[in-house]
Design a protein around this nucleic acid. Structure first.
Length: 798
DNA sequence: ACACGATGTCATGGC
DNA sequence: ATGCCATGACATCGT
C-alpha cells in the first residue's frame, strides 16, 4: 500500500494528466502491476500479442546481428535469438509513436516511471533503463563505449536513480509476492526505497547496492552473469536486479535489465534465456546497436531509444555536434545543458541514439536503415510530444535548482552540441511547461540570479513549443468562438481559462430553440396549409387556410380571430414540437372558429364534443377531420360565442375583436343593438384584444429572455476572444523577452573589462537605464538598487 | 392528488 | 375621455 500510495500521491496525478494530454494508453494497472502480481498477466496477454506482430522485423534485425560472439552454443544462440525477438517485440508493441511521451512521463515522476516501466510492458522499462544507465556511473565493464557516455549521463543519473529505486521497490513488491526475498535483498530494497523517497538523494547507496549486484555479475563472464541473474530472479531478487541490474546495465544505457525484468514479470518462462540473450548481446558494443536498432525505433521513439543506446554510442555523436558553433550562448547553454541532462536525459539519449544510429549505420546497414527511419520518426515524435514534455517539465523544474547547486561540470560544457539539442528540447519543455502554467514565471528568472547562468534564455525550439502550447489554447478558443462555440465548449473554456461560475449556458440552447421554434413556427404554419402571416406582436392579419375559409364561408365568413392564430404561434414558439404533432396543428388550424358563432354553425358539435374529454375530442377529430371546427371549441371560446349567440349578436366575434375602432363602430351603428348586446360585444372585444395582448406580452417576455441569453453567449464569446488576444499578447511578450534575453547574453558575453577580460556573469549584470543606455553593474549593486534606486554605472555602455 | 405549464381573463396603468 | 396596449395577478385547463 505504501508504494501505491506514494506513487499515486507523487506522480500519478501528473502522470495521468500527461497521459490524458498525450492520449497514450497507459493503464494505471501498470503501476499496480508492480505491486500486484496478478495484474501482470493482464499485461502479458497484450504484450504477447504484440510480440507476434513484431517477430518478423525483430528476426530480421536479429539476423543482422548474426551470431553473437558470446553465444557459443548454436542452440543457445537460437534461444537467445528467439527470446531477443520476443523482447524486442515487446518493446515494439509497447510504444508506438506515443511511447516517447510515456518515456518523458516516467522521467518526471521518476519513481513512478520506473515502476511503470517494469509493470507496464510498454514504456517504462526503457525509461528506467535509460535512467538506470545514467545512474550507474560505475565503470561498465560490459560496455566499452558505454563508459564514455556514462560520464555524460552521470548528472542525470541521480534522477534516474531515484526513479530506479522505486522500480526496484515495486518490482520487489511484486516479486516478493511471487518469490521470497532474502534479508539482504529486503534490506537492499528498503534502502532503495528510502532513497526513492528522497528521489535520488540516496543515489549513491542505491548505486552501491546495484553495483554490488552488478559487480558480482560483472566479474563473472557473461554466462556467469546470466546465471547469476537468473538465480536472482528466481530468488525474487530479480526485482532488485531489475533495478540494480538495470542500473548496472543501465550504465550502458541499455534497458536490457528492465526488459529482462519485464520478461520476468510478463513471462517467467524465458528469464534465463532472456538473461543469456541479453548477456550475449549486450556485453559488447552490440548492445547499443541492439537497442538502437530494435528498441529505439518503434518502441521507444526518440527519447527511449536515446537513453539506452546513447550511452554507448552517443558519446561520439555529441562530440561531433560539439563542433557546431555555440559561441554566444555557450555559457548559458552549458548550464542549460546540465539542467537538460538531468531533466532531458531522454532527449539527449534520443538524439544521441540518432547520432549513434547514424554512426552505426555504416557498421550495421540493416539496422542503420531502420534507425535512420526511426530517427526521423523520433524527431517527429518529439515534436508531437510537446504536450508530454510539458507534462514532464515539473520534475525538471525541480531539478533545476539542484543543477545550479551542483553547478556545472566542465564536461557538460564540453558537450555543447548534444546538450544544446537536448537542452533546447528540455528547456523548451521546461520553459513551456512553466510558461504555460505560469506565464509570468519566465521573466523573473531572466532578471533574477538565473541570469548568471543565462539559462533563462530559451532557444527557439522553446518558443515554438510555447507557441504551440499557446496555440492549442487559442485554437480551442477559436473553435469555441468560431464553430458554434457550443455551450459545453464554452463552459470548458471558461473553466479552463477562467474559473468563472457565471450562468450556465446549458440552458442557453433551450432558450435559443424557442426563437428557432418561433421562426420555424412561422414557416411551419405557412407550410402547414395555414397561410397565416402574423406580425411579431402576434396575431395580426392572418389568413385562414382553405379549411378555415370554408368554415368561415359556412359560418358567414366571420373575420378570423387572431388569438387562435397567436395561440398557434405561441404553441410553436414555446415548443416547436407541437408543430410536429399534426393533430394539434390541425386543431389549431381549425380553431379559427373560436370566435365565430359556432353555436349557430355547429350548434350540435360543441355540445357533443364538450361532453367528451379532450382526448375524446382529439380522437373524434382524427377520425373525422371533416368537421374540425366543431371539435376545437373550448369553453372559453364557446362561452363568448354562446353568449354572443345567446344575445343574438349578428356578427362574428372575430369581427368584434379585430375590426378597427371605426369600422367596429360603424358595424355597431348599422345594427340596432341593445345595451346588453353592446356591452357583451365590448366585453368580447376587450377580452379578445386582451388575450392577444397577453399573448404578445408573453411572447415578449420570452423574447427578452432569449435575448438575454444570447447576450450572455455573446459576452462569453467576447470573453473568449479577449482571452485569446490576451494569450497572443502574452506570447508576443514572452517572445520579446526571450529576444531581449538573448540579446542581453550576446552583449554581455562581448563585454570586456579594462584588462580585456570578460565580466563574470555571476558578478555583473547589465542594467537598463531610463534613457535607453545599458550599463554593466555588479550584481550586488543591482540588489541594492532594487532596494534603492541608486545606480552606479560602471564601464561600458552599449 | 399534485405540480407545472399554457392559456385566458381581469385589473391596472400608461400612452 | 376614450381606446388601445402592456403587464401582473389570478383562474382554468390539460398533461
Amino acid at each position: 500500500m505504501l508504494y501505491l500510495k506514494k506513487y499515486f500521491t507523487e506522480g500519478l496525478i501528473q502522470f495521468t494528466i500527461l497521459l490524458s494530454l498525450i492520449g497514450v494508453r497507459v493503464d494505471v494497472d501498470t503501476y499496480l502491476n508492480s505491486q500486484l502480481p496478478p495484474l501482470r498477466e493482464i499485461i502479458l496477454g497484450p504484450s504477447s500479442a504484440y510480440t507476434q506482430t513484431q517477430f518478423h522485423n525483430l528476426r530480421n534485425t536479429l539476423d543482422g546481428y548474426g551470431i553473437h560472439p558470446k553465444s557459443v552454443d548454436l542452440d543457445h544462440f537460437f534461444a537467445i535469438r528467439r527470446l531477443l525477438n520476443q523482447v524486442r517485440s515487446l518493446d515494439h508493441l509497447r510504444v508506438p509513436s506515443t511511447e516517447l511521451n510515456a518515456w518523458l512521463v516516467h522521467r518526471d515522476p521518476e519513481t513512478v516511471v520506473s515502476a511503470a516501466s517494469q509493470s507496464s510492458p510498454s514504456i517504462a522499462l526503457d525509461n528506467g533503463g535509460s535512467l538506470e544507465d545514467v545512474n550507474s556511473p560505475e565503470p561498465s565493464a560490459m560496455r566499452g563505449a558505454g563508459s564514455t557516455s556514462e560520464s555524460t549521463y552521470s548528472l542525470s543519473g541521480e534522477d534516474s536513480l531515484g526513479a530506479v529505486a522505486p522500480e526496484a521497490n515495486q518490482e520487489q513488491g511484486n516479486r516478493d509476492s511471487v518469490d521470497e526475498l532474502s534479508k539482504e535483498d529486503i534490506d537492499l530494497i528498503d534502502i532503495l526505497w528510502r532513497q526513492d523517497i528522497d528521489l535520488g538523494a540516496g543515489r549513491e547507496v542505491f548505486n552501491y547496492s546495484s553495483r554490488q549486484k552488478d559487480d558480482g555479475d560483472k566479474p563473472n563472464e557473461v554466462n556467469e552473469e546470466a546465471s547469476v541473474r537468473e538465480e536472482d530472479w528466481r530468488n525474487g531478487v530479480n526485482l532488485q536486479e531489475g533495478q540494480g541490474v538495470t542500473l548496472v546495465d543501465g550504465e550502458t544505457g541499455e534497458s536490457i535489465p528492465e526488459e529482462l525484468s519485464r520478461l520476468g514479470t510478463q513471462t517467467s518462462m524465458s528469464l534465463q534465456e532472456c538473461l543469456r540473450l541479453l548477456e550475449a548481446t549486450f556485453p559488447f558494443g552490440e548492445e547499443s546497436e541492439f537497442q538502437a536498432t530494435d528498441a529505439a525505433p518503434q518502441l521507444r521513439g526518440p527519447a527511449e531509444n536515446a537513453p539506452s543506446t546513447s550511452q554507448g554510442l552517443s558519446l561520439p555523436a555529441p562530440l561531433t555536434q560539439s563542433d557546431a558553433p555555440l559561441d554566444l550562448e555557450q555559457q548559458w547553454q552549458d548550464i542549460m545543458a546540465i539542467m537538460e541532462l538531468q531533466e532531458m536525459d531522454v532527449n539527449n539519449t534520443a538524439e544521441n541514439t540518432n547520432l549513434n544510429n547514424l554512426n552505426n549505420t555504416q557498421a550495421n546497414t540493416n539496422e542503420s536503415g531502420t534507425m535512420t527511419s526511426f530517427g526521423v520518426s523520433q524527431s517527429s515524435l518529439i515534436n508531437q510530444d510537446v504536450s508530454l514534455h510539458q507534462a514532464s517539465l515539473p520534475s525538471c523544474s525541480q531539478d533545476l535548482p539542484s543543477l545550479f547547486n551542483s553547478d556545472l561540470d566542465p564536461s557538460v560544457g564540453q558537450r555543447p552540441t548534444l546538450l544544446r539539442l537536448s537542452s533546447s528540447n528540455s528547456s523548451n519543455i521546461n520553459s513551456t511547461f512553466g510558461v504555460t502554467n505560469l506565464t509570468g514565471l519566465y521573466l523573473p528568472p531572466l532578471n533574477s540570479t538565473n541570469n548568471l547562468t543565462s539559462s533563462p534564455v530559451l532557444p527557439d525550439p522553446f518558443v515554438s513549443l510555447l507557441e504551440e502550447s499557446m496555440l492549442d489554447e487559442i485554437s480551442l478558443l477559436d473553435l469555441a468562438m468560431e464553430e458554434g462555440f457550443s455551450q459545453a465548449q464554452a463552459s470548458q473554456l471558461e473553466d479552463e481559462l477562467d474559473s468563472d461560475s457565471g450562468l450556465s449556458l446549458d440552458s442557453g440552447q433551450s432558450p435559443a430553440s424557442p426563437s428557432n421554434s418561433e421562426t420555424s413556427c412561422s414557416s411551419a404554419a405557412s407550410s402547414s396549409s395555414t397561410s397565416a402571416t402574423f406580425s411579431e406582436e402576434g396575431a395580426v392579419g392572418y389568413s385562414t387556410d382553405s379549411e378555415v375559409a370554408t368554415a368561415e364561408a359556412e359560418e358567414g365568413a366571420v373575420g378570423g380571430y387572431q388569438p387562435e392564430y397567436s395561440k398557434l404561434c405561441r404553441m410553436s414558439y414555446q415548443d416547436p414540437s407541437h408543430f410536429h404533432n399534426l393533430p394539434q396543428l390541425d386543431s389549431i388550424n381549425h380553431n379559427h372558429t373560436y370566435n365565430l358563432p359556432l353555436a349557430s354553425s355547429y350548434p350540435e358539435q360543441p355540445q357533443l364534443l364538450g361532453s367528451c374529454s379532450k382526448k375524446c375530442r382529439d380522437k373524434h377529430l382524427q377520425q373525422t377531420k371533416i368537421h374540425p371546427p366543431r371539435e376545437f371549441i373550448d369553453k372559453q371560446s364557446s362561452r363568448d360565442e354562446r353568449r354572443a349567440r345567446a344575445m343574438k349578436i349578428p356578427f362574428s366575434n372575430d369581427k368584434i375583436v379585430n375590426l378597427p375602432v371605426e369600422e367596429f363602430n360603424e358595424l355597431l351603428s348599422k345594427h340596432h343593438l341593445s345595451e346588453a348586446q353592446l356591452s357583451l360585444i365590448r366585453d368580447i372585444r376587450r377580452r379578445g384584444k386582451n388575450k392577444m395582448a397577453a399573448q404578445n406580452c408573453r411572447k415578449r417576455k420570452l423574447d427578452t429572455i432569449i435575448k438575454l441569453e444570447q447576450g450572455v453567449q455573446d459576452l462569453r464569446r467576447d470573453k473568449a476572444r479577449l482571452l485569446k488576444e490576451k494569450m497572443e499578447c502574452l506570447r508576443s511578450i514572452r517572445q520579446m523577452k526571450q529576444k531581449v534575453q538573448i540579446l542581453y547574453q550576446e552583449v554581455f558575453s562581448q563585454l570586456r573589462d579594462e584588462e580585456g577580460r570578460p565580466y563574470p556573469a555571476s558578478e555583473y549584470c547589465l542594467q537598463y537605464s531610463a534613457d535607453g543606455s545599458v550599463l554593466i553593474t555588479p550584481r550586488s549593486m543591482t540588489l541594492e538598487q532594487s532596494r534603492k534606486p541608486d545606480k552606479k554605472p560602471k564601464d561600458k555602455k552599449k
